[in-house]
Design a protein around this nucleic acid. Structure first.
Lengths: 314, 314
DNA sequence: TACGAGTTGCGTCGATTCATGCGTCGAATT
DNA sequence: AATTCGACGCATGAATCGACGCAACTCGTA
């Protein structure tokens, strides 16, 4: 670690705020140099600077300063500031429709596919539950459920068959996620709102995120599929979440106007996540964070975890 | 400083009610911050919040707000004996406001409606689970869930609002039924196939039937919504069920040809049920049984099971 | 079965309170 | 000499307050 210790003025200039504000943030929110003896000059380490960067970015997104400071204090790095997202690698696009739709996704996937073809919901449930219990929600989703569902989906659009299989598996997956959410008691008021974009009917990925959040002890609200913009704004207005995750599976449902409506809504500004492969990186309004996969969405949401809402300060 | 001095907005968001409602509760029932000078902002201490939590819990169970407030003021963490669906004395009148019309469906229905308006999925789950545990699936469906869902639906078609509420409640109901199915281990191979009619997207009644069947120890398969005729025949052909229940919610999805196709298929099931209000009694092909409600469908299915057992034993 | 009375949640409006960023000042630090 | 420190104060926009009213629902009654 470079032991560079930035002075208050340097930090203030870098952040674009006044020196006095730094002092104010320190004494009001405790957001200052980690080691500081009263009366002496403040020396900001890179870690302190990172905290202040988080504070600046959150406040720039409209988060109330008191709340933003709380997040910044306990979660130094809440993800990329928006620049690094564009370099998102196109993740595995499992091309090639082979005879076995799951490809090389492991034996569990093959077993699941077989149970699905047999319409054996008990076996499906058993496989999914065990995978979740063993590997957790994220891994199960990425390495088991998504491949199988993608395989069924490809086959379905190609052959116009397997519709009943797709429905059954979707139901089982949904139920498994719901069971995870039910098993983990929520530890506080839900400050996270998950919703599908307008006309978007694929809610399973969002349910996966919800289950992963529950697994991590993070409370949330999940609205479901096909949420019109008006209904979404209504829900935001009513519950006032700290962050909203809007899922879009396909390009046709990824209308950036929905994000803009969220950011300019009557309710207080908030963090907005644009999740799902539908969104185009270039056309997103400013202030929208775009996680590339489930794991990143989870870690981003974790930054909001322990923030008990209280806008009062003493 | 008291690190827990919640502002009015924060509390309102946490409870899922409007800020105005909080003020109303204060001046109508005296349910407010313990220390509050008129004109100043309200600061809710944890004790005050606990009181409001009690208020929320009681109203979620259908207690009239005035009475719930009386309880919450004097006993922050106690409640009246939580009773089942039909219980509860009607001591106080129950008003309206921004809620869902449930008519005379009992206090639990009103509590569920209030929780739904608050988008409080935890409270919704709690109410539903307890009702199912106390009164069983059939009674819960007929006297609690269906009235509330019908109320939401009516208001939804009239006002084009409450879509998010409808989705949330539907999800919770679906999850509750799924939990019932999971909790009761199936005792044999499923000889019963439940499926929605083609284009039919309301699968909740079928899920209710599925949960009731599971509760009675009858194994079944549930395909889900929007099952094309070809997919249904495919599933019947593959699994060879003894009976098939085909659900149709509205007249537009009740094509009798689907029933005829079932009866003339190669793997002809022993019995075909045409369930749901969509079917017209006159236009059903011969050999199709039409249960009028959930209870009748359940008893018919039980009869099928028993006859199968007898034939297997003999 | 229709209607009035009682209840309840919440929107609106003008006034007030509060949180926040920053300027200023005398003393201390580098 | 150049900053920075701690303390205080100020301007401003957001949040809230109190009051009022409205629409909707339930229930008792005719």
């Amino acid at each position: 670690m470079a032991d560079e210790a930035l002075s208050a003025g340097a930090v203030a200039r870098r952040l674009g705020v006044a020196v006095t504000t730094l002092r104010t943030w320190h004494q009001r929110y405790g957001l200052g140099p980690s080691e500081h003896v009263p009366g002496h000059h403040r020396r900001y380490t890179p870690a302190d600077l990172a905290r202040l960067e988080t504070m600046r970015r959150l406040t720039a997104n409209g988060v109330a300063p008191a709340e933003a400071a709380r997040w910044a204090v306990q979660a130094p790095d809440t993800g990329p500031p928006g620049a690094g997202v564009g370099a998102g690698k196109r993740s595995a696009r499992d091309g090639g429709g082979a005879t076995i739709p799951v490809g090389r996704s492991g034996p569990a996937a093959r077993g699941l596919a077989r149970s699905a073809m047999r319409l054996d919901s008990n076996a499906i449930n058993e496989v999914i539950d065990r995978a979740i219990r063993t590997d957790g929600v994220v891994t199960t989703w990425d390495t088991l459920l998504r491949p199988v569902l993608a395989g069924i989906g490809e086959r379905h659009v190609a052959t116009a068959a397997l519709i009943e299989v797709e429905h059954l598996v979707s139901r089982c997956v949904s139920e498994a996620f719901a069971a995870v959410v039910r098993a983990h008691a929520p530890d506080g008021p839900p400050r996270l709102l998950l919703s599908c974009a307008d006309e978007e009917q694929h809610s399973l990925p969002l349910e996966a995120l919800g289950a992963a959040l529950a697994e991590a002890g993070i409370a949330h609200r999940l609205l479901g599929a096909r949420v019109p913009v008006r209904a979404l704004l209504e829900a935001v207005n009513r519950t006032g979440p700290a962050a909203v995750v809007l899922w879009s599976q396909t390009r046709s449902t990824a209308d950036p106007a929905q994000l803009t409506a969220l950011l300019t809504g009557p309710q207080r500004p908030l963090l907005v996540f644009a999740a799902g492969p539908g969104w185009r990186a270039g056309s997103l309004p400013a202030g929208v964070v775009r996680p590339v996969d489930l794991a990143e969405a989870l870690s981003l949401a974790a930054a909001v975890r322990d923030s008990l809402d209280q806008s009062a300060a003493g």
